[in-house]
Every structure is written in structure tokens, then in C-alpha cells.
């Protein structure tokens, strides 16, 4: 997919180019105090992660006191859908990493393509999850069916909404990148969107085993 740089070098690249000859450049052991993207998104990410953490822990302890109910209904979930969605989100996160790398090399068109790929995978995630919801609803299962489904639907739908929000952010950034709105020296927007999308992935990586697998 062409020439690109690693996302982890974004903060260090300018300093490196001033102090180290190209032939001597290395890619590790350099620390910075600032995360990629806008610091404001990281405050937002910490807040979002805290809410999900609370929900995960409440789910786990509620399950402890309703073991039979949770085990019985968890087995009725389609774990293949969970697997497909996990592989989908991980791959979309990887596409976003490649998008950041592309823009760090100044290739805005390539950056945009990787972002559209990530958005397409986000759509696939929503489609698979939508089919899963449709199956449950067609059986008359809803939020008030029992405690397990209250948690299952609330947790996964809360995450579902975050996927939609992430896709909106990625779409705005992909359109701007496609118009040449970012370059190698100014691409904070791409890194900010990427950080949010990775957070959505990180949450799912805990949610999938917790709700679909662990019993």
C-alpha cells in the first residue's frame, strides 16, 4: 500500500530530523509526554473507558449473584457473530493505523483510502450486530426479558452507538484527507480520530470475552 511511516513516530519526527542525521535515525527508545492527536480526545477517552469499566464490573458481580440465569442465556448467544465482529474491529483498527502512517508520510490520498476501508469494516460490524439484534427481537427478547438480556442489550447497544460515532468521525476525517486537508506536518485530526477508533476496539476486546465466552 505504498510509502508510509509508523504512527508512533509522529511526536518525535520533527525533533529527530533536527538532531539526528537520516542515516542514523532509529525508531525506538524515544519518549514523549504527549499522546498522538488532540489531548482533549484523551480526556474524553478516559471518561468513556471509565463508564464502560463500571458497566463491565457491575455485569460481572451481578452475574455472580445470578449464575444459572446468566449461564443459561449466555449459551443462547451466537458466539460466531461475536467472533466475526471482533476480527472485523481489530482489522479496522489496523487499517486506521495504516491511515495514520500514510499521512505521516504526506500521502493524503492513501490515508483516505485506508480510512474508507476502516469505515466499511465498521459498517460490517453494525450489520452483523444488527442481524443479531433482529434475531433476538424476533424471538420476543428485549431489555425487560430478564437481567441477563438487560445487561447484554444495554452493554452491546452502548458500544454499538460508539461504533456509529466513531464512523462519523472517521468519515469526516476521510473526506478532509481526500480533499488534501492534511499533510505530513499537520495531521492532528487523523490521529485524534484514530485514537477514538482504537478506544472503541479496546472496549470490544473486553466486552466480547466477558459477554460471549466467559462462563
Amino acid at each position: 500500500m505504498g510509502e508510509s511511516d509508523s504512527p508512533v513516530l509522529s511526536q518525535q519526527k520533527a525533533t529527530l530530523s533536527m538532531t539526528v542525521p537520516d542515516s542514523n535515525r532509529t525508531s525506538c527508545a524515544i519518549t514523549t509526554d504527549y499522546p498522538p492527536g488532540d489531548v482533549a480526545i484523551w480526556i474524553f477517552i478516559l471518561a468513556e473507558l471509565s463508564v464502560f469499566a463500571l458497566l463491565f464490573v457491575v455485569y460481572a458481580f451481578t452475574r455472580h449473584y445470578n449464575l444459572e440465569l446468566f449461564d443459561l442465556h449466555q449459551q443462547q448467544l451466537d458466539s460466531r457473530s461475536g467472533l466475526i465482529n471482533t476480527l472485523t474491529l481489530i482489522t479496522s483498527s489496523y487499517f486506521v493505523v495504516r491511515a495514520v502512517a500514510a499521512i505521516q508520510y504526506g500521502n493524503a490520498r492513501l490515508c483516505s483510502r485506508w480510512l474508507w476501508g476502516a469505515i466499511a469494516l465498521g459498517l460490517l460490524f453494525l450489520l452483523v450486530k444488527g442481524v443479531e439484534y433482529q434475531h433476538h427481537f424476533s424471538l420476543g427478547i428485549g431489555l425487560s426479558t430478564n437481567l441477563f438480556y438487560t445487561f447484554y442489550i444495554s452493554l452491546t447497544f452502548f458500544h454499538f452507538m460508539h461504533v456509529i460515532m466513531g464512523m462519523v468521525i472517521l468519515t469526516v476525517v476521510a473526506l478532509k484527507a481526500g480533499r488534501g486537508g492534511y499533510c505530513a506536518t499537520e495531521h492532528t485530526g487523523v490521529e485524534t480520530a484514530a485514537s477514538y477508533w482504537h478506544m472503541v476496539d479496546l472496549v470490544w476486546l473486553i466486552l466480547f470475552p466477558l459477554v460471549y465466552v466467559m462462563r
Partner: peptide, 11 residues
Amino acid sequence: IIDRFMGLRWV
């Protein structure tokens, strides 16, 4: 994800 994808390895 935190270290490699989010790029926090060197933060």
C-alpha cells in the same frame, strides 16, 4: 492495542 495501535508505547 494501547502500545502498538494507539501509539502509547513511547508516551
